[in-house]
């Protein structure tokens, strides 16, 4: 039996049918066509599928799709506006904070969440907060710098 789910994704009302065992990540990618969230592990270890559900940061591979009934889901596709990228996205580009780019959507979602909770994080705070988002290409250096620079810009300081 399929589940009928009504939810909000990036501020838009969405409804879908899914298997009771389908993950939110599967539905986002295969049913809703939102393929910016990536599956790197399927076990919540890599963070490439990071989304926010009712404002809480989560790995969408660990959430069953029926669980988002009546909730607010935010994905990488909702981060930039039509006019402009989010400061984190701009600073990742400026600092070369991505190489292959497959972890980048998860990093953007997680870092945006961090800066909403803590507008002035230390380097150490950024490192610990992003410890759940694996990147195998960059050694994290330029990602951390991009997040710190984005935070400074968002606080109105020269980045």
């Amino acid at each position: 039996m399929k589940c009928h789910v009504q939810t909000q994704v990036n501020g838009e009302a969405v409804e879908f049918l899914c298997d009771p065992t389908a993950t939110l990540l599967e539905v986002l990618r295969d049913t809703l066509g939102l393929r910016g969230s990536k599956e790197g592990c399927g076990t919540g270890d890599c963070g490439a599928c990071s989304v926010e559900v009712d404002g809480a940061l989560a790995c969408s591979c660990l959430i069953l799709a029926p669980e988002v009934e009546g909730r607010q889901v935010s994905t990488i596709e909702g981060v930039a506006s039509p006019e402009a990228l989010h400061p984190i996205q701009n600073h990742l580009l400026k600092s070369a904070g991505l190489q292959c780019g497959v972890c980048t959507p998860g990093i953007v979602v997680a870092a945006k969440h961090l800066l909403e909770q803590n507008p002035n994080p230390s380097e150490e705070a950024v490192r610990y907060f992003l410890a759940g988002n694996l990147c195998r290409c960059t050694g994290y250096d330029k990602i951390i710098r991009a997040v710190l620079d984005a935070a400074a810009e968002m606080r109105g300081e020269a980045a």
Binding site: G36, I76, L85, L92, K94, L98, G101, T104, P105
Partner: peptide
């Protein structure tokens, strides 16, 4: 900025 950059930071 790399030519494919925006595609990669927006998913």
């Amino acid at each position: 900025v790399r030519p494919d950059g925006v595609d990669k930071v927006t998913g």
